[in-house]
Simulated scan of single mutants.
Amino acid sequence: MNRYGFILFLLFALILSGCMSPDAEAPRGTEAELEKERRTQIEMVFNTNLEEERRILSIAYPIFKANVDICPVFGYATGLYVWNKYNFERKNRSIAKRTFNIGETLQIKHIMPDSPAERAGLQIGDRLVSLNGKDINKGRYAERDYYKDLRSIYRDEKINLVVQRGVNMIPISMVRDKICGYGIKYSQKMEINAFADGYAVYMQRGMYRFIESDEELATVIGHELAHNSMLHIDKFKWNSSIPIIAGIAAELANAFYGTDIDTDSIDTLQGYTRLIYAPSFEREADYVGLYMIARAGFDTSKSANFWRRMSAEHAGESGVDVEFLNSHPSNPDRFISLEKAHKEIMHKKRHSLPLLPKMEEGKTLPLVETPYVRKGGMR
Rank of each mutant, 00 (worst) to 15 (best):
P22W: 15
G18I: 13
L57M: 11
N49C: 01
V45S: 04
D69F: 10
T48F: 02
K97A: 04
L16E: 06
N92E: 15
Y76T: 00
N101K: 05
Y81I: 08
I102H: 08
D69M: 05
N92S: 14
R54H: 09
A60W: 06
P62G: 02
L16P: 00
Y86D: 08
I42A: 06
V68F: 12
A77T: 05
P62H: 04
E35A: 08
R98V: 00
F88Y: 15
L34S: 03
L50T: 07
K85D: 05
A24E: 15
R55Q: 15
N101R: 10
D69P: 03
K91W: 10
L11I: 15
P27L: 13
E52Q: 12
N49A: 04
F12Y: 09
T48M: 05
F100I: 07
F100E: 03
S94N: 09
T105W: 12
I56K: 04
P22K: 14
N101D: 14
I70K: 02
L11F: 14
L57G: 01
N49E: 05
C71R: 02
A13Y: 09
K65N: 09
N49M: 03
V73E: 12
M20S: 05
R98A: 00
E89K: 12
N101E: 13
S94V: 13
D69N: 12
N49G: 09
V82Q: 01
P72N: 13
P22A: 15
L34R: 09
V82I: 12
R93V: 15
F12H: 03
R90I: 11
L80M: 07
R54F: 07
A26P: 09
R54I: 07
R38H: 06
M44W: 08
R54C: 06
K91G: 08
T40I: 14
I63V: 07
I70H: 04
F100Y: 15
M44K: 04
E35I: 01
R28V: 14
F74Q: 00
E35R: 06
A66P: 14
Q41C: 02
T99W: 09
K97M: 02
E35G: 00
F46N: 10
N49R: 04
R38I: 02
R38G: 08
Y76K: 01
